[in-house]
């Protein structure tokens, strides 16, 4: 009796051990490539790390000096303001244009699929390439934007877009909007496709117009999708790095520095890895806050 019951349970336990092996590579990978670097990022943010101490391999502990140095002064608040302006404007325009395109492509018309595929291209090419393309289009002497504006007599002298603080940030925002439209459109489009068609038919019978059906059927049904798209947009906009590097490198005079490029500049240009990590860790905290909100909206992500 006893032996009979113990055999299956042993086989069961064996099977469970074997099963665990499927997850071991991923577990090790996550610990080595994410867990340890994140822990280490906290460690170095409390160290005095420069070129010399990196090479020696032993950096002195210096408490919260990096955090105070990195997060105080008017310079950093200027960069935070840039990051907020960049993020908010990027997201608003990406979302609104993405939504309008999704509504358009939700209609039936010829070549719908083909045209939708073309819209994806800006999202698929390397962001560094996109940055390069926009750098050329906004070139002060021969760029198509200046040529077009001059030709239309909107401006009378070519504008040095990337040399003025405010216009440089605007060019970066425009580039980022262009990159983000496909992502917003595809997610909203698939959200629209999930709205039950019967709802619209019922509304039509009740005599509701197009605007009313949009407001009372479409918006409530895709509210969660909207929230998810906006939260993901926030998180991804925080990561933007490549296009700033090609378009301006953070200049002129840090006018287009974002938290991401500033962390890079501190670590890899000034070789102050401690301060770079202090900014990088701040970025992680911000990203995690948005992730928490994202999870609150999208509980399905953990099913």
């Amino acid at each position: 009796m006893l032996s009979e019951s113990s055999t299956p349970s042993r086989a069961f336990r064996m099977a469970r051990y074997k099963r665990a092996w499927f997850l071991v590579p991923l577990a090790v990978y996550l610990l080595v490539m994410f867990g340890y670097p994140l822990y280490y990022s906290i460690v170095i943010s409390f160290q005095h790390l420069n070129q010399i101490t990196v090479i020696r391999g032993h950096a002195p502990f210096n408490g919260v000096v990096n955090y105070i140095a990195a997060w105080s002064g008017s310079g950093i608040w200027h960069i935070v303001a840039n990051t907020i302006e960049f993020t908010v404007l990027s997201i608003i325009f990406q979302f609104v244009i993405g939504l309008l395109l999704a509504l358009l492509f939700n209609r039936k018309f010829p070549a719908n699929g083909f045209l939708r595929a073309l819209i994806l291209v800006p999202w698929l090419i390397p962001q560094l390439v996109s940055g390069t393309i926009f750098k050329w289009m906004f070139d002060s002497t021969d760029g198509i934007i200046n040529e077009a504006l001059l030709g239309l007599h909107i401006i009378h002298h070519p504008i040095s877009w990337l040399l003025h603080p405010q216009s440089a940030l605007i060019v970066i925002i425009i580039t980022n909007i262009w990159i983000g439209i496909p992502f917003n459109m595809v997610l909203i489009y698939s959200g629209l496709k999930d709205v039950p068609q019967e709802l619209y038919e019922a509304a039509q019978i009740d005599g509701a117009g197009k605007w009313k059906s949009f407001l009372h059927i479409t918006v409530p049904s895709v509210r969660t999708v909207f929230a998810i798209v906006l939260m993901l947009g926030l998180i991804y906009t925080l990561k933007v790095f490549d296009i700033v590097m090609t378009l301006t490198g953070g200049g002129p005079e840090n006018a287009t520095q974002l938290l991401s490029t500033w962390s890079y500049t501190l670590s890899f240009t000034n070789f102050d890895f401690g301060q770079g990590a202090a900014i990088a860790n701040g970025l992680i905290v911000i990203a995690l806050c948005f992730t928490a909100v994202y999870l609150w909206f999208n509980k399905r992500a953990l099913d």
Partner: peptide, 21 residues
Amino acid sequence: LVLLIVQMIPGISLANALFII
């Protein structure tokens, strides 16, 4: 949950520590 969170971490935050490691 872990996979979702690590996807949200900005690359520059990883690159900083990975460089020293």
